[in-house]
């Protein structure tokens, strides 16, 4: 018996390492330990072993069984490992670039707009939108721009034909013309007419001028405008807003300064300069960044607010100009050409 068992183990030890596939393994396993297997057959002979030899033989059989199982386990582990390994190709070259396309990118104008609105959101400004097709009332009349003002010229402003009809841009007066808004200030008027003071809004958006396209002019561009209306709003509050915006954008030591200017819908009016030290490619101490002022009482009167009670400020700036200053871009046309080499620089 002992010899038979030893021979069986020796056979398994030499045969099992040569088994490669799982079916072959299963067949081999059946041959040894299956119901008709050789070990099973030997175990069946236990009955004919004399009683006094049974403990010894039983022990031998158990040892053989354990040894056989070890061979089987090893073979199975090897086969399974080989099967997993077969699912893999050769090791990768980790230095090859990914063939997948490059990540998506936000346009620099979006980045700048979102950064500005985030900064303004922190001090209570909410973002509003208004139509790009406007009427003369919202774009000019309500903003104290007289009928013969040069800005209203067909030379400077795009108009739609008098026959144009819009389903969702309402005229204030039946005989006014539709035009493409020349500034986002029209949104101020819509907000004032709709809202209840106090009001604190920022309106970014696309505006249109009848300009020759060159490195600094574009038929359409984007503005961002803030309006705050409350009681006792002062010039000093306006200065505080500008200081806050640009310190948030460019760092604590950024300064702004006001220069007196003229806009029809603010009084007093100022142009805003920015200390340019933090800007790339600006070889000047101060650079103009936008216009602002205290809402002219006539604007309040026109939209039905009592100027004795309500006061406010407005600030507006060009987003292309801001983006150009922040990133050091020297041609406004790049924003509209969408060369991917340009677009991928800002994400």
């Amino acid at each position: 018996m002992q010899d038979l068992l030893s021979a069986l183990i020796a056979k398994a030890a030499s045969e099992l390492p040569t088994v490669v596939t799982r079916p072959d393994f299963d067949a081999a396993k059946a041959r040894y330990v299956g119901p008709n297997g050789e070990l099973t057959a030997l175990m069946k002979q236990m009955g004919s072993v004399p009683k006094e030899q049974k403990p010894v033989v039983g022990k031998l059989v158990n040892e053989a069984k354990t040894a056989l199982q070890a061979h089987l386990d090893a073979a199975l582990a090897r086969i399974e490992a080989a099967a997993l390994a077969a699912q893999l190709g050769p090791a990768v070259d980790p230095t090859l670039p990914s063939p997948d396309r490059t990540p998506g990118t936000q346009h620099p104008l979006t980045l700048v707009r979102e950064e500005m609105t985030r900064i303004l959101r922190k001090v209570g400004f909410t973002v509003v939108e208004g139509p790009e097709v406007e009427t003369e009332y919202y774009c000019f009349d309500a903003l104290n721009t007289p009928a013969d003002h040069p800005a209203r010229d067909a030379q400077d402003t795009f108009y739609l034909p008098e026959s144009a009809r819009f389903g969702n841009v309402a005229k204030k007066n039946p005989d006014e013309k539709y035009l493409l808004r020349t500034h986002t200030s029209s949104v101020q008027i819509r907000t004032l007419l709709k809202g209840q003071p106090p009001i604190r809004i920022v309106s970014p958006g696309r505006v249109y001028r009848r300009d020759t396209t060159d490195a600094t002019h574009s038929a359409n561009f984007h503005q961002l405008e803030c309006l705050y209306v409350d009681k006792n709003v002062t010039v000093r509050d306006l200065k505080a807003l500008l200081d806050y915006i640009f310190a948030s954008l460019l760092g604590k030591d950024t300064k702004t300064r006001f220069r007196p200017h003229y806009f029809g819908y603010t009084e007093p009016s100022f142009e805003v300069d920015l200390s340019a030290r933090h800007l790339p490619k600006v070889n000047k101490e101060w650079i103009e960044i936008g216009g602002c002022g205290m809402v002219d009482p006539i604007v309040f009167k026109d939209v039905g607010y009592d100027p004795e009670v309500w006061s406010g400020y407005a600030f507006g700036m060009g987003l292309e100009r801001l983006a150009m200053l922040l990133y050091g871009i020297d041609d406004i046309r790049y924003f509209y050409q969408n060369d991917a080499r340009f677009l991928r620089q800002f994400a």
Partner: peptide, 12 residues
């Protein structure tokens, strides 16, 4: 952007 698109801005 998450799907790998580049944002473009064109004239109206």
């Amino acid at each position: 952007v998450g799907q790998g698109f580049n944002e473009a801005v064109n004239y109206t």
